[in-house]
Nucleic acid binder design. Structure first.
Length: 561
RNA sequence: UGACCCAUGGUGUAAUGGUAACACAGGUGGUUUUGGUCCAUCCGUUCUAGGUUCGAAUCCUGGUGGGUCAGCCA
């Protein structure tokens, strides 16, 4: 094997330069979610990036909850976030951190700012502050409170902290200047008053620091070397650096913010607000609905951690806006499951077949391979009998030449079984096909004939007598539009796919599946990859279709139609 | 009429001044007891105009197109 040099993304580039120059001996990254929702595939990209860098460069990665807004945050989210990160296969450095751990330090820094004359208490309303901030092209104007004395500011700020004012009555602002071309640098708000219960600090505080005043300082406290975030924070970087300039001690590690482009996936939405709306309006069954792009949804759908990590690797890291085709995600899970999933026979839309020349009451065991990609996964026995079920779509009464399956007078191979030929089509009074009468060739057991005659088609089947009943949930994309939230004036919910879930409650599966457990993954031969859903009971197994197999037959036909 | 950022096949990512590569998607063919897998093959004036250079996707300048920013959200 040539030791070909792996190309580096721009962040790895920066890190290698920093390591080489001696700026850092070891790197420390962090993943900083706000506990206000469940993690989605976009977060998975960030997790794989941050933790992956930690591993790649022999450094570490902190988990830090960015919990500065008590009204939106909850421990439910803290728990799910930790579960998802662990499930993805990553381990954070030490205990989980919380920005709220640093509230005391942050408050001290705020007091220092006041003493240095670079922060002041503003009495203006939110509306007034907004109105005097200017626009991107026009500078803002100074607050009438901008030149209060240090003592007055100190007094007011401590009274804010002590709860003497109501929500919104006062804020602490930095004195960075109202004429900056960067909106974020126009006297940004540092602290606001919220008389709210915090999920960790309870009612200790009634003032809470803003994101900008918290994030960089938290990085600094933890000794983060590379603080990686998404592109929309690029305009915040001057502020991030400005705060650090005020508190930086040159003996300590100074973190650097680096921005990359967030993940967008076609045919879905990624914003937590919109995902929350789908949950709250019961459009989906919950954050872990298998149609959701959440990590918990993908997990329930049958995605593996490995497939998600591979996906993150494949999409790369760069700064330009991107939309990844969902087919790449689907490819990633097929690629992984193809190697690891046991094959079984299951019929989703059963059509009865009677083999008229097969002895009544006889059942024989037929050997089947568990995974042709991996011999070590062994073989199993599948019961075969006179009455079988095959897939309804595997029979066509008036079949075209290229249809390689069952049709009147045509011979087909039952996978691992016998060759059968269809002789009679039984219909009900309405003309619906209810049963097929076939004959089998006893010489073809296992699926090959002594005379070597060519059989084009192989179809799957289960014994009618020995099959178990299962429910199968077929999922399709949640939205019919490639970019549901990319339309101005049209709500993303207008593009919901009415057929995103189809429940098949009368499916038949081979006996082997009887003892399958929740989360187990299988390939139903010729149909796709499926996993046992949480809703399964002792009486009935429920399967989720993770992803169908590639199907060049129906694709070919769709083109023709 | 601001600041910051971005521009390479349909999609995404490489090429670190020296033959535009890889993956997905799509097309075609081959193998096949899954119409799966696997294999082969096809699919590009690197946004544009200049400049620097023996040599530019890469460096510089202008243009064009796109993104982000006017929360007491993160």
């Amino acid at each position: 094997m040539e030791d070909e040099k792996k190309s580096l993304n721009f962040i790895e580039q920066i890190i290698e330069d920093d390591l080489k120059s001696g700026k850092h001996k070891e790197i420390l990254t962090r993943f900083p979610p706000e506990p206000n929702g469940y993690l989605h595939i976009g977060h998975a990209k960030s997790i794989c990036l941050n933790f992956g860098l930690g591993i790649e460069y022999n450094g570490k990665t902190n988990l830090r909850f960015d919990d500065t807004n008590p009204v939106k945050e909850d421990v439910e989210y803290v728990d799910s976030i930790m579960e998802d990160i662990k499930w993805l296969g990553f381990e954070w450095n030490g205990e989980a951190h919380y920005a709220s751990d640093y509230f005391d330090q942050l408050y001290e820094w705020a007091v220092d700012f006041i003493k240095k004359g670079i922060a002041y208490v503003d009495d203006q309303s939110a509306e007034a502050i907004s109105a005097t901030r200017g626009t991107p092209t026009r500078p803002g104007t100074d607050s009438p409170n901008r030149n209060r004395t240090v003592d007055e500011n100190l007094d007011l700020f401590s009274r804010m902290k002590n709860g003497e004012f109501g929500d919104g009555e006062k804020v602490l602002r930095a004195r960075t200047g109202m004429d900056s071309p960067n909106m974020h640098m126009r006297d940004p708000v540092l602290y606001r008053i919220k008389h709210a219960q915090h999920h960790r600090t309870g009612d200790t505080w009634c003032i809470y620091p803003m994101y900008d005043f918290t994030h960089g300082q938290s990085d600094y406290i933890e000794g983060i070397t590379h603080s990686i975030c998404t592109l929309e924070f690029e305009n915040h970087r001057p502020l991030y650096d400005w705060f650090l300039d005020q508190i930086y001690d040159s003996t300590k590690t100074r973190p650097r913010q680096i921005e990359f482009a967030r993940l967008n996936l076609s045919y879905t939405v990624m914003s937590k607000r919109k995902l929350l709306e789908l949950v709250q309006k019961n459009i989906v069954t919950g954050w872990d609905d298998p149609r959701m792009p959440t990590i918990s949804g993908l997990r329930r759908r049958g995605y593996t951690p490995e497939s998600l990590r591979n996906f993150a690797e494949k999409i790369g890291v760069a700064k330009r806006d991107n939309v990844i085709d969902v087919s790449l995600l689907e490819f990633s899970v097929r690629e992984d499951l193809n190697k690891s999933a046991r094959r079984v026979l299951a019929v989703l839309d059963p059509l009865k077949v009677v083999i008229t020349n097969y002895p009544e009451g006889q059942i024989e065991d037929i050997e089947a391979v568990n995974n042709p990609e991996d011999e070590s996964m062994g073989k199993r026995m599948v019961p075969f009998g006179r009455e079988l079920f095959i897939e309804r779509e595997d029979f066509m009464e008036d079949a075209p030449k290229k249809f390689f399956r069952l049709a009147p007078g045509r011979e087909v191979r039952l996978r691992y079984g016998y060759y059968i030929t269809c002789n009679d089509v039984i219909k009900d009074t309405a003309g619906n096909i209810i049963e097929l009468h076939c004959t089998y060739d006893p010489e073809t057991k296992g699926g090959q004939s002594p005379d070597g005659r060519k059989i084009q088609g192989t179809i799957h089947w289960v014994s009618a007598e020995k099959a178990i009943d299962i429910e199968v949930r077929i999922y399709d994309r949640l939205f019919t539009d490639e970019a549901p939230d990319g339309h101005k004036d049209v709500d993303f919910k207008e593009f919901l796919n009415p057929d995103s879930l189809e429940v098949l409650s009368h499916c038949k599966a081979e006996l082997y599946l009887k003892n399958a457990e929740k989360g187990d993954k299988f390939q139903f031969e010729r149909k796709g990859y499926f996993c046992v859903d949480l809703d399964s009971t002792a009486e009935k197994l429920v399967f989720n279709r993770t992803v169908p197999l590639k199907d060049s037959w129906t694709k070919q036909n769709n083109v023709k139609n």
